[in-house]
Structure formats: structure tokens, C-alpha cells
């Protein structure tokens, strides 16, 4: 049995596997399959200042090796999260990450302030949701905006602050450096890639939002590449996600530079995916005689220009 414990910005996780925001609600549905304590942590559904209805359906479209979603941050609002969801999660023995998804910088500040003194272990600031008109990816598409919102939330919270980055940018390392400079304790990436499907019979987009975020195994190589680039560009820890569906995928993502990983779309194919990934990582580490999962982080040996 390998040591699976990891730390991200000083926050301990009993193993590196965390269901990703939006794929797992607040955990209640999956507690009906297995105890949530098997997981390293949970990244809760993105939460806005007030209840948000989300986008018109259809919100889901299947794609080759993946899916599009345009849920649009439907959530009960920060007060309902603190009052109804957090007390439940606190009893489940896993690290709790609140995903903050304010529509404005002021909303993000207020949400972060409301989380002060709660049992939330870490804040994941969502500057990358592709499905909302305000906030979301609009915050994360330039280094200047990303820096401004990070600085504002940094000033409003004493909790460890992780910023979730969008892959829909020219240079993700520039965004990562900008949020690091403003006091982010960690970055998580990637959010979904912006995509679109069209029903050729009706000539209508399948999603009522026209576009949506692509996730699933299709995006995995893009995510590995971006995690590798960002891990080489910043000193703060990176949490890697995007298409991870197996223990081998998780190991690969950690070798690229991720200190922990998140699992999203794989849960829809197999609700047990996060638990299986923990077991598969453990088995792989044991097979290789590696004592601690921390030993593999960032250990990819990239080829040099000389081919060595």
C-alpha cells in the first residue's frame, strides 16, 4: 500500500483524487454509491452569490470520446451552500473545496468573505466557465483580468486560494503567472474547451446555448500539455484535470506536474471512476515499488533539442 497522501498549498488530501466541480454536485448523489471518505476531496459545484437558474436545455451533447455541456452554473447560491450543503459535507471526512463563480469581481469578494470561518478547506476561484455571459471565462481570458479578480479575492479571504484556468486562451502560462503574482496559492486546469455541435437535419445547434464546454477523454492530451507547460512556468502547485478516466491517466497527469488531480466527465460513464482511480494508482505505485505518490509529481523526462 503506497502512501497516497498529498498536499496542495498546505492543504492535506488523503489521496490525490478529487471529483471536479460541476460533475459531482455537492456529493450527496454519489454517497448513495460509496462513502465520500474514499475520496481525497471534493470540488463543489460552482457557486454564485444568489441562486442561479442556468441555461435553457438541451444542455448536454455527446461528442467523439467526450461531451459538451452548457449547464450555465445552475446552483442554489452561496448562502444555501453554507446552510444546507456544507454541514452535510463536513461530516464526510474529505477535503472540501468551494468553487467560487461570481458574476462580478464584487460578487467573488462577497462570496469569499461569506466562506471565512466556515469548514471549507480551500477556495477554487472559477475564472473559466465558458457557459455564462458574465464572470466565468471573461475573467480568465486575459492576464490583466485574471490578475485583478485574483487580487480582489486574495484580499477577501484567509483560506488557501486556487484559481481555475481556462484553456481557451492563447497562452495559459501567462494567465497562470499573472494569478501567481497576485497571491494565488495554486492553480487548477483545465476547465472545458469551448465547442459546438450542429444537428444537420434541423441545422440547429444541439445545445440551446449554441456552444458549450468540451470534456472527457478527447481533451486529455490538451490538458496534459497545458499542465506540463504551467507547472514549468509557476512555482505554486498545479491541480490537473481534463479527461482523466483511469489510474494510468492520473499518474500521467501527475508526472506532467500535477500535485493532485480532478475527475469530471468520467464519473458520468462510471460513477465509481474516482474510487477506481485511487485503487489503480495505488496498484501501479506498488507494482513499481514507489512508496509515495508525491514522488512522481513532475517527473516527466522531456526530450531535449538534441533528441536526448
Amino acid at each position: 500500500m503506497a502512501d497516497l497522501r498529498v498536499e496542495v498549498a498546505g492543504v492535506p488530501f488523503k489521496n490525490p483524487v478529487i471529483p471536479a466541480s460541476g460533475a459531482f454536485g455537492f456529493g450527496r448523489e454519489y454517497e448513495k454509491f460509496y462513502p465520500l471518505s474514499k475520496l481525497g476531496g471534493i470540488s463543489c459545484k460552482g457557486t454564485t452569490l444568489f441562486l442561479k437558474d442556468g441555461n435553457l436545455p438541451p444542455r448536454i451533447a455527446e461528442t467523439p470520446s467526450g461531451m459538451l455541456n452548457s449547464v450555465g452554473l445552475q446552483n442554489p447560491g452561496i448562502d444555501a451552500f453554507i446552510e444546507h450543503e456544507l454541514p452535510y459535507l463536513q461530516t464526510k471526512d474529505l477535503t472540501i473545496i468551494a468553487n467560487v463563480a461570481g458574476s462580478t469581481v464584487e460578487d467573488c469578494i462577497t462570496i469569499a468573505q461569506k466562506l471565512e470561518g466556515t469548514a471549507v478547506d480551500m477556495i477554487e476561484l472559477n475564472i473559466s466557465c465558458p457557459n455564462v455571459k458574465e464572470g466565468g471565462a471573461a475573467f480568465g481570458s486575459t492576464p490583466q483580468m485574471a490578475a485583478a479578480v485574483t487580487k480582489a479575492v486574495r484580499g477577501a479571504t484567509s483560506k488557501p486560494l486556487m484559481v481555475k484556468l481556462s484553456p481557451n486562451v492563447t497562452d495559459i502560462t501567462a494567465i497562470a503567472r499573472a494569478v501567481e503574482a497576485e497571491g494565488a496559492d495554486a492553480v487548477s486546469l483545465i476547465n472545458t474547451l469551448l465547442g459546438m455541435r450542429i444537428d444537420i437535419n434541423t441545422r440547429r445547434p444541439i445545445l440551446k446555448n449554441n456552444t458549450g464546454g468540451l470534456s472527457g477523454p478527447a481533451v486529455f492530451p490538451v490538458a496534459v500539455r497545458m499542465v506540463w507547460q504551467v507547472a514549468n512556468a509557476v512555482k505554486i502547485p498545479v491541480v490537473g484535470m481534463g479527461g482523466i478516466a483511469s489510474g494510468r491517466d492520473a499518474i500521467e497527469m501527475m508526472m506532467a506536474g500535477a500535485s493532485a488531480i480532478q475527475v469530471g466527465a468520467a464519473i458520468f460513464a462510471d460513477p465509481y471512476a474516482p474510487v477506481k482511480i485511487v485503487d489503480e494508482m495505488n496498484a501501479w505505485l506498488d507494482e513499481k515499488g514507489i512508496g509515495s505518490v508525491k514522488e512522481i509529481v513532475g517527473t516527466v523526462k522531456p526530450w531535449g533539442p538534441d533528441g536526448q
Partner: peptide, 16 residues
């Protein structure tokens, strides 16, 4: 009927 992902009420995809 609606296009569905998780099937258990977590992902909020199949809204009506």
C-alpha cells in the same frame, strides 16, 4: 425525456 449525463441529479444537465 431530455439529453442526460450523470442520471442521478448531480450534473444538472437534463433540465426541464
Amino acid at each position: 425525456e431530455e439529453r442526460m449525463a450523470c442520471g442521478v441529479g448531480a450534473c444538472l444537465g437534463c433540465a426541464c
